[in-house]
């Protein structure tokens, strides 16, 4: 039996010390890591349990919230201020996984969960540049109905599976990190990378860097925000396409808007093109559709997933129309 250790970190300093050891990996709820260890895709030799670190949701001076990395998904979705001030976040969290899994899953672990690409999971039989850099990708010519249409590369077409992160991307969330080189902050939209030539490098984190918290800056108009997830069955399935959006409309005009997409790219996809097209313009279904089309201009469909382009366009349009309808 290979030697294997487990330790529970009492604070950030302890976690960082233990996390620096070769072969060490942090563990939150374990709902992704334990599965991947069983599949031999992850092979740590030491686990550092970080569920004992901050599990508070604190109100920040000047507005906004600081959410500890060890906050469980259920607690995040239930928090009164999250539900009322950023409903998109609460809705995104409860759109994911199951009640049992949300009770276990932490905010930090949710952000760093890995793709559900079936070829990535098939360690015994398929080629995957994420698992074995340089090996090739069986998804590109394979069954790729659930794969990426935006920002993919010739090395990898996997998507990021998190619902929560799509809402965080829309809300301008900032991730707090700590590591051997000191503490730093990274916008959620810059935490995950596009695959390029190195799909095995999924985030900008250094190997032993730790997520300590995620900050929601004040965005009062995000009270009017929501999340819509389109999937193969009504519950308990990953997104084909999802849309997180917040909309501020005054006198029929779009004052401000945030849109992020899930299920379409290697990272939560902030729809900057669509946002730019909308701000200052009319809040009409036609304008929403045009903005969605502008965002999807860059989409490159694979053999089986061309439907996602129209699906994403329609879902963006529908979500913005729903949010605009609520202002009248």
């Amino acid at each position: 039996m290979k030697p294997f250790t487990y330790a529970r970190a009492g604070d950030v300093a302890e976690a960082l010390r233990a996390g620096a050891a070769p072969g060490a990996k942090y563990i939150g709820g374990g709902t992704n890591l334990v599965d991947l260890m069983r599949e031999t895709i992850e092979q740590p030799t030491a686990l550092v349990d970080v569920t004992g670190l901050s599990s508070d949701i604190k109100r920040l001076r000047g507005g906004g919230l600081l959410i500890g990395a060890a906050v469980r998904n259920t607690e995040l979705a239930t928090h009164r201020e999250v539900r009322t001030q950023s409903p998109v976040l609460s809705r995104a969290v409860v759109a994911g996984a199951s009640g049992q899994i949300r009770n276990m899953a932490t905010v930090g672990g949710n952000m760093l969960q890995r793709t559900r690409c079936a070829y990535f999971y098939d360690a015994g039989g398929s080629r995957c540049n994420k698992r074995n850099p340089g090996q090739g990708c069986d998804a590109i010519e394979g069954f790729n109905r659930t794969h990426a249409i935006l920002g993919a590369s010739s090395a990898c077409v996997a998507t990021h599976p998190s619902d929560m992160c799509v809402a965080l991307a829309a809300l301008d969330a900032v991730v707090h990190l700590d590591g051997p080189g000191g503490a730093r902050k990274v916008p959620l939209t810059e935490l995950h990378r596009l695959p390029g030539d190195h799909p095995e490098v999924e985030t900008v984190l250094d190997r032993s860097e730790l997520i300590t918290a995620v900050e929601l800056p004040p965005l009062p108009w995000a009270r009017r925000s929501t999340y819509r997830k389109v999937r193969d069955r009504a519950s308990y399935a990953f997104a084909l396409v999802s849309v997180a959006a917040a909309l501020d409309v005054r006198g029929g005009e779009v004052r401000n808007v945030r849109i992020a997409l899930g299920g379409v790219a290697h990272k939560p996809w902030r729809a900057h093109e669509a946002e730019t097209a909308l701000i200052g313009g009319p809040a009409t279904t036609r304008a929403f559709r045009a903005a969605a089309e502008a965002e999807l201009m860059a989409a490159k469909p694979l053999h089986d997933n061309g439907f996602k382009i129209e699906l994403a366009t329609r879902t963006i349009t529908a979500v913005l129309s729903e949010l605009a309808g609520g202002t009248r």
């Binding site: 487990y6 563990i27 374990g30 334990v34 599965d35 349990d49 259920t74 199951s98 049992q100 009770n103």
Partner: peptide, 21 residues
């Protein structure tokens, strides 16, 4: 969900739970 148990009255799936935690 076949492996669901209660931990401090909360439901979890015990197959993805490391006992040491």
């Amino acid at each position: 969900g076949a492996c669901t148990v209660l931990v401090d009255d909360e439901r979890i799936v015990s197959c993805l739970a490391l006992a040491v935690q």
